[in-house]
Design a protein around this nucleic acid. Structure first.
Lengths: 149, 149
DNA sequence: TTACGAGTTCAAGTAACTTGAGGTTCAAGA
DNA sequence: TCTTGAACCTCAAGTTACTTGAACTCGTAA
């Protein structure tokens, strides 16, 4: 039997089999050939395509963005510059998220540190930090509440 | 009429009204009093509680984690140290995500730079980067594919 | 031949809300 | 007092990107 079974494709691309069927359903992957017993058989090209898709997903591109990228690769009339621009837009998004996450890291680290320094380990209702989290107007300039919300 | 209407609570806590109803439905917020026309009326305590919830969510805690935190605040028999530990666990998660995102940023930036330097802007099917993304075994040590997957 | 793992389909579940439909209530202006 | 329109109500379905479950068939090794 030539070609890969779904489990083999899954292994090669580190994807779950149901995810592969899902990609087929939403049209990200073409419907593959079936062997006599109705089982899917994939070719080398499917491995490449799915690898591409998974890698893009790992890069944080949304399914719709990946779809655009896949179509772009397929369509000889469209330029590589489009892919570059899509990636560039995505880069801006990632950088914004990175900034947020850094602020968040700082805040939570501050939370833990303050808790270590100021709380006696008593009931949660007396915890200075939990109390602060519930405060409507963030008092002063505590790093803890700066980036929240 | 004493108390806040849902729209007022929403404004004070920068939350959508449907989200407030949703939180009530899943038991994160207690069922509020209703006035004669069946409209919800909230007290100051609800503002505090929802502020707490929203802030925790902004900190990236999951609904389940927030639920644990809320219960912790309410239960006088449980210690503040539990909150600290929960936050600490969360901090580790955030740091892991931060590392991933940094690698991702580097990779996409590399993608864009390589595209600027090497692609002639021709058809996507000839783009060196798109081509690389579809390559099964990442060739060499290009930063582009290192962190993906 | 008989297990049993791997495959099949279809439906429903997941998180954390958002959106829509269709109907009431409230508050302010004429 | 009436009327209008914003804000409220409930219930259901949509969103994203899959995952999980049920109930069944197929392929292959002992």
């Amino acid at each position: 039997m030539p070609g890969y079974k779904i489990g083999e494709l899954a292994e090669r691309t580190r994807t779950n089999a149901p995810t592969i069927r899902y990609y087929e359903e939403i049209g990200l992957l073409p419907r593959p050939e079936r062997q006599e017993g109705n089982q899917r058989r994939y070719a080398e090209d499917d491995v490449r395509r799915l690898t591409f898709i998974r890698r893009c997903r790992a890069f944080g591109f949304s399914i719709d963005q990946v779809r655009a990228l896949v179509e772009l690769v397929q369509d000889r009339t469209r330029s590589c510059a489009e892919a570059r621009d899509l990636a560039h837009t995505h880069l801006m998004d990632v950088r914004a998220k990175l900034r947020e996450l850094k602020a968040l890291e700082k805040s939570i680290a501050g939370f833990v540190a303050t808790c270590d320094a100021q709380c006696a380990g008593g009931p949660g209702s007396e915890c200075v930090i939990l109390d602060e989290l519930a405060t409507i107007e963030p008092a002063g300039n505590r790093a803890c509440c700066e980036s929240a919300v």
